[in-house]
């Protein structure tokens, strides 16, 4: 038990956590090399957006993310930075909130707009209204990234980097490395990574 630190902790007054959610599991989804579906989803600008309409795109960074999840929040600034770096190179971020706003009120369309304004999101932030898109991709959590090439062939699936909690301690920028490899036509490795995330909320 040498690395274990036993802590006896003195309790203090707690606070409530609302308990309203249920979730389902989706096990099917894309693998590397599959062609991902395009979609037409409403963005926070009130307009419908599709991948094929994004001008000058050489690839697509589809990020399933949301407002409420602590892990998603920790990555907001990093997603903004990724868009600033790779958007102009033709690899835009397309963020999709996959959660049902009834199951998770913090992820409502109105709250998405609010959060995007607060943080100054520089990327498309869309709502998977009806939850038809995330199951096709096989997203199971937020954040969950799918990097597609120009023909929407899946190149990379997984995490943004290897340290959600502490950006300064990141050793491997999985997503940035994958995009750079795609740009250079090199092999993406690792092509699949994993991270802890919030399960997608359904009614």
């Amino acid at each position: 038990m040498k690395k274990l630190m036993m802590i006896l902790l003195v309790g203090t007054l707690g606070y409530g956590t609302s308990v309203m959610m249920t979730e389902k599991e989706e096990t099917n989804g894309y693998n590397i090399g599959d062609v991902a579906t395009d979609f037409s989803l409403k963005g926070i600008d009130g307009k419908k957006h599709t991948l094929s309409e994004i001008e000058g795109a050489k690839g697509y960074v589809v990020v399933f993310t949301c407002n409420h999840c602590p892990f998603a929040k920790m990555y907001e600034d990093r997603i903004i930075a990724l868009q600033a770096e790779f958007g102009p190179k033709g690899y835009p971020i397309i963020a999709i909130n996959p959660n049902d706003p009834i199951a998770e009120p913090d992820d409502s369309f109105a709250k998405m707009k609010e959060r995007a304004k607060e943080k100054g999101f520089n990327f498309l932030y869309l709502l998977d209204d009806g939850q038809k898109i995330y199951p096709q991709y096989g997203a199971t959590k937020t954040p969950h990234v799918f990097l597609l090439n120009e023909k929407r062939v899946v190149q990379y699936i997984g995490a943004i980097d290897d340290n959600a909690r502490d950006e300064a301690a990141v050793k491997e920028k999985f997503l940035a490395n994958a995009i750079n490899a795609l740009i250079k036509g090199e092999k993406i490795s690792p092509a699949v990574t994993k991270a802890i995330g919030c399960s997608i909320k359904t009614k």
Binding site: K3, M5, L8, V10
Partner: peptide, 10 residues
């Protein structure tokens, strides 16, 4: 103390 929860950090 022992009436409180015990948390082991790994």
């Amino acid at each position: 103390f022992s009436s409180y929860s015990q948390v082991v950090v790994i």
